[in-house]
Amino acid sequence: MEKNKNFEEQMAELEKIVTELEKGDLSLDDSVAKFEEGIKLSKECNKVLEEAEKKITILVNQDGDMKEENFDAENN
């Protein structure tokens, strides 16, 4: 679940960078650096969303330990 926490942090970081840049009081170099950092971060966020893959599973107790199997609600 750790990775997910990062996604939220990444989004928060992205928000922070955008507001900082919008303030406009950074030097030109810093602005360019912040811009690049922001764009890179936004691409990473998009990647996380693209990579996520649909999974609907059910935890089944098979003689003592839990197994995770795919679950199809329709024919259950």
Binding site: V18, L21, G24, S31, F35, G38, I39, N46, L49
Partner: peptide
């Protein structure tokens, strides 16, 4: 995704303005 897109645009716009 729209939100991310929004951020990207705001980044571009503020850099251009700078």
């Amino acid at each position: 995704k729209q939100k991310i897109l929004g951020y990207q645009n705001r980044l571009r716009i503020s850099l251009i303005k700078k």
